[in-house]
């Protein structure tokens, strides 16, 4: 069959491109590095370990008490404090009833509840919206313990997770965190835990790095005298969190959205 030069070149070019892409693709598949994302959907309920928290706000009476929890967390994780709301990063913070549970109150809420400060953090949801939307699986629900983790190396900083989180739990590094005033003093740094880089999202990680050494999360330890925060395995019927849930009336934030938070609140009574 006769073929002119142009057709020949075209065929050679397309074959090279196709062969290159096809070959590279096959190599990746063989190495197993091409993963499809199903990180959030594979966990069965009661599969072994599902970490959860019950926060008893009746025991968080004074600002010092919850400030201790916040400081413990932010110090352990080198969370930067830039001193302005625009660049703010927070993993755990206080807010009042009306703003912690919008829509749950009314005009006649008891004053003691209205004035109470609630500790808010990532709810480590069972069906996290943030995990569903992440295009790179930089955030994912870990199968071994249910923590919604962040992989700062993979995050491209698209902030879709921040748009998706109904609880405002996530913060973005709008600038280099090491420029923050509080991190200039070496005494304030925890050298065992890395800082993050500009351009990635971060949030509470249930102190995964402390859990791996057999320690409790920093906020739990900070209030262990009052046991305001109880932490443990939901899948273990004998755990303290299950005991709290059995014996108290507990609520979640925005339960109607179906994300099924694993952080519960005891608010009164």
């Amino acid at each position: 069959m006769s073929m002119d030069r142009r057709d020949f070149l075209r065929i050679i070019g397309l074959s090279t491109v196709a062969g290159g892409i096809g070959g590279a693709g096959l190599l990746e598949l063989r190495k197993g590095t091409a993963e499809a994302g199903s990180a959030a959907h594979g966990r069965k309920k009661g599969s072994g370990t599902t970490l959860a928290m019950v926060i008893d706000v009746r025991k968080l009476e004074s600002p010092d008490q919850y400030k201790r929890c916040i400081d413990a967390c932010h110090k352990a994780h080198n969370v930067p404090d830039f001193g302005n709301p625009k660049d703010e990063i927070k993993w755990i913070w206080p807010d009042d009833f009306e703003h912690s549970f919008p829509g749950a109150g009314h005009e006649y809420v008891a004053e003691e509840v209205e004035k109470k400060q609630f500790l808010l953090l990532c709810n480590q949801c069972e069906k996290p919206a943030c995990v569903r939307v992440c295009p790179t699986q930089a955030t994912f629900k870990r199968a071994s313990d249910g923590i919604v983790m962040m992989d700062y190396h993979r995050c491209i900083g698209c902030r879709f997770c921040m748009a998706a989180c109904p609880f405002g739990a996530r913060s973005f590094n709008w600038r280099d965190p090491r420029g923050a005033a509080n991190l200039q003093n070496p005494a304030n740094l925890n050298p065992k835990f890395p800082t993050r880089m500009k351009g990635v999202v971060e949030k509470c990680n249930f102190c995964a790095e402390r859990l791996r050494e057999g320690l409790e999360p920093a906020c739990v330890e900070a209030c262990k005298d009052t046991k305001a925060i109880v932490f443990g395995n939901l899948d273990d019927p004998k755990s303290e969190v299950r005991e709290m849930l059995r014996t108290h009336y507990t609520i979640q934030r925005k339960p109607e959205l179906g994300t099924n938070p694993r952080v519960f609140y005891v608010i009164g009574g």
């Binding site: 994302g37 295009p135 699986q137 995050c155 900083g157 698209c158």
Partner: peptide, 29 residues
């Protein structure tokens, strides 16, 4: 516009290297 909005634009290929069919943003790309 997407590129300049990303916090880590140099990592944009992570979307291709870690395809996530459950994510709408993956499909957008």
């Amino acid at each position: 516009f997407i590129f300049v909005d990303l916090g880590q634009p140099m990592r944009v290929m992570n979307v291709v290297l870690n395809p996530t069919p459950g994510s709408v943003m993956f499909w957008d790309m």
